[in-house]
């Protein structure tokens, strides 16, 4: 088993980060192109705790190394990940746990991501992944498979941070524009009321 871990700080509030997190893999993110689809499978709010639980299916397309492909005897380019996330509004924590659906007889990948507020304007991101090759046989092959995936995690984490920064910046801009539009509409409506009152 190998472990990959990573932590980042985003200069955005937890509210902004947890909202933008839902569209982390949208076209605004031009870095994490290996994620080709994100589907929501279920979504519920626990009436007692207020925790929002979401199940998603993440579809990735990323080519595997040639030696691994020949070992498996086929293309390994498309893979799926099952993700369950829990938003706790009371502790202001987002926890996301993911497991690989594809090649689960060969390898087991368990990833946990947590977003917590550091303060009013900063959010901490913590990521940990446990990677275990399950195939019987040579330890050397298992090690190679695990090392390949750890390397892949490291590369994707760098791209993920850059891509998410872009999504956060864009979200802030869009929300600000929306608020501005709402303000203008309200002012126009008020001006209209004043004109009507003056005419009457």
């Amino acid at each position: 088993m190998k472990v990959f871990s990573n932590a980042e700080t985003f200069n955005y509030s937890w509210e902004e980060v947890s909202t933008a997190n839902w569209r982390k893999y949208c076209p605004w993110n031009q870095k994490s192109t290996h994620v080709v689809a994100v589907d929501t499978l279920s979504r519920t709010v626990d009436p007692e705790t207020g925790i929002l639980r979401t199940e998603r299916l993440i579809t990735c397309r990323q080519s595997a190394p040639d030696w691994l492909k020949s070992l498996m005897g086929g293309s390994m380019d498309e893979s799926q990940v099952y993700e369950t996330s829990y938003v706790d509004p009371r502790t202001r924590t987002v926890t996301m746990v993911s497991a690989n659906l594809t090649w689960s007889n060969l390898i087991n990948v368990q990833e946990t991501v947590v977003y917590r507020p550091l303060n009013g304007t900063q959010t901490r991101f913590e990521q940990a992944a446990k990677i275990t090759a399950l195939c019987g046989g040579w330890q050397r092959i298992k090690n190679s498979i695990e090392d390949t995936l750890v390397k892949r995690f490291r590369e994707n984490a760098v791209k993920g941070k850059e891509g998410f920064e872009a999504v956060l910046a864009m979200s802030r801009r869009v929300f600000a524009e929306e608020r501005e539009r709402e303000k203008i509409m309200m002012l126009q409506a008020q001006a209209g009321n004043i004109r009507m009152a003056a005419a009457a």
Binding site: E15, S18, W22, R23, V35, A37, V38, D39, L52
Partner: peptide
């Protein structure tokens, strides 16, 4: 928003995602 793995579901997915995001940011978080 991101795509669906099934292209035929893209349109309804986009509508749902937009609705959810609005609910999440304007209601749930508040």
């Amino acid at each position: 928003m991101s795509q669906s793995l099934a292209p035929e579901c893209n349109e309804i997915k986009e509508r749902y995602d937009t609705c959810f995001l609005k609910w999440y940011s304007e209601k749930y978080l508040r």
